[in-house]
């Protein structure tokens, strides 16, 4: 199901990323104040937007999971949070480098976007420990979804509140992009946003495919072993997919063919 069209998607992503990099370095003009360093903006800001959208998507998938009790939605939510956490680390690192370059400090508390982002990351960092600390797979899935919904709502609200609390010191690249940036900046920025989104989606689908495949593999192994003398599964933070090996299960195996 997730494996379908994965190759063309991956190729498109690769092409988009390459084009973004080429344009960012060779076509977009250097920033008048920040010079070459400003190029990190094309990485940092789109990455941050995609990360946050990933968290919000995880919350929506979690709502679907609680409504349908379908473990595939829990897996979608889990993979989304997992990926966004990885992207988020890249956001924090690139943001820190940018801050060092333009303001001379690695961390700036008066930059609300950065601070809110840190809070969001601190919150989501507890997602995996929470899952791991609940042994019953079904309860784990349900509690994780409750967490993902709460945290997903926290993401936008937190940004508003932290921004309210801070004086507007730095250029708002996000809010009024059309006013601040000349044409070429804009083109590259939006292209970069699209490529980062594509990268996220590709990686998400890749991991979903892999999780599905291993669930099917386990189901087949169980079928071959005749379900006898089966050891209890290892404690894990990864969602359990209820996949039938013979297509008899509700979320059939045939889907991935």
């Amino acid at each position: 199901m997730y494996g379908k069209r994965l190759r063309p998607l991956a190729l498109t992503t690769f092409a988009a990323l390459t084009l973004t990099l080429v344009l960012a370095f060779f076509w977009a003009p250097n920033d008048a104040n920040q010079g070459f360093l400003q190029k990190i903006f094309y990485l940092h800001v789109p990455l941050a937007i995609v990360t946050l959208c990933g968290f919000v998507y995880a919350g929506l998938a979690a709502i679907a999971h609680l409504r349908t009790r379908d473990s595939r939605w829990d897996m979608r939510s889990y993979v989304a949070i997992h990926l966004s956490l990885v992207f988020g680390v890249a956001v924090l690192v690139s943001g820190s480098i940018w801050a060092k370059g333009s303001w001379g400090v690695w961390w700036d508390w008066s930059e609300p976007t950065l601070v809110s982002f840190l809070l969001v990351m601190l919150l989501y960092a507890t997602y995996q420990p929470l899952r791991f600390a609940i042994e019953d797979p079904e309860r784990q899935a349900r509690y994780a979804s409750v967490f993902a919904i709460t945290a997903g709502a926290f993401v936008p609200i937190n940004f508003v509140i932290v921004r309210l609390s801070t004086a507007y010191l730095h250029p708002r690249v996000l809010g009024d992009i059309s006013a601040n940036l000349p044409g070429r900046f804009q083109v590259v920025f939006y292209l970069s946003l699209v490529s980062m989104a594509l990268l996220w989606i590709t990686l998400w689908r890749y991991e979903m495919t892999s999780k599905h495949a291993s669930a099917q593999l386990r189901a087949l192994k169980r079928l071959l072993a005749g379900d006898e003398d089966e050891a209890l599964p290892r404690r894990s933070a990864v969602p359990t997919l209820s996949v039938g090996a013979g297509g008899a299960g509700s979320s059939g195996v045939g889907a991935a063919r």
Binding site: L123, T126, P129, I134, A151, I161
Partner: peptide, 20 residues
Amino acid sequence: VRTSVRDLLGPMISLPLLVP
């Protein structure tokens, strides 16, 4: 409360949510 490390997870989850 129904996790194996409830004394740790409680503050870890609630403190970021309580920052605002």
